[in-house]
Amino acid sequence: MTADSPAETGWFAELEPDDSEGAAAAITEGTAAEPADWPKLAVEAGFASDAEEYYDRLKEATTAATRDAVERAERADDRQLVHAVRTMDDCTRTANELAERLAEWAGTIDPDAGAGVEYARAIAGEDAERDVGHERVRSLAERVVSLADEAEDLREYVERETPTVAPNLAALADPVLAARLISLAGGLEPLAKKPSGTVQVLGAEDALFAHLRGHASSPKHGIIYTHDAVRGTHPDERGSAARAVAGKLAIAARVDHYSGERKPELEAELAERIETIQSRTADGEGDENGGGGE
């Protein structure tokens, strides 16, 4: 630690040469104000017999440290959620697309062909309720069904996992909407850092940029449109409702990211606010009705 022994700030200080775990930790956690001639100092300190051996050890330690950090980042739960919710949407979309193709094809051989995943279920499998009499069509139907089932399993996974990753967000929105917001923001931390105005229009980027280019009005809501409090509010007041929901969701994301503790009062505050907003239109409608009405 003294100025005349810079070797003590090198990553290899206090390390046994064969302690690979300690070495990786020293790479990740260590700091030094200034660099030094580390290869030379390491050899002098007896950490390595020569520069070549020092570099071999450095290679091993930096690789292990970086690999650990990369794996940690990939395993982080919000990353899992992002992948799951995106895969869920991919599976749903692909199942629907293939179901359309199936309906088109099956329509040429099955006079009673239906449409959608529901029809695929009817003709899929060995013991299907209906036999279209065409091996390839039936096989395609099986793919559609298994993709739709996978999407359903993924939804269950998302509904189960979101409350542990983001308890307040999952309570305030439904777990799937919470996961979608995390996915759109690119993770819980980026979501926690977004102002509520951005949260309000996440998922409405097309409309937002059309507005910024100057040929559309600003979007009132993005994906949070699916929130009951927004959808259940009269269109005239939806902008206010979306603003209120986004405000609370932004706070919930910050609490979830920075502390992780449950704050049930957020739900109560939102419910109260939404009630006020919805009563405005209820009053308004009352006035209209009173004044002659429809």
Binding site: G10, A32, E34, A36, D37, P39
Partner: peptide
């Protein structure tokens, strides 16, 4: 740089 000066050599 102080987060990797203990690893990267000088000069």
């Amino acid at each position: 740089p102080e987060t990797y000066a203990h690893v990267v050599e000088r000069d």
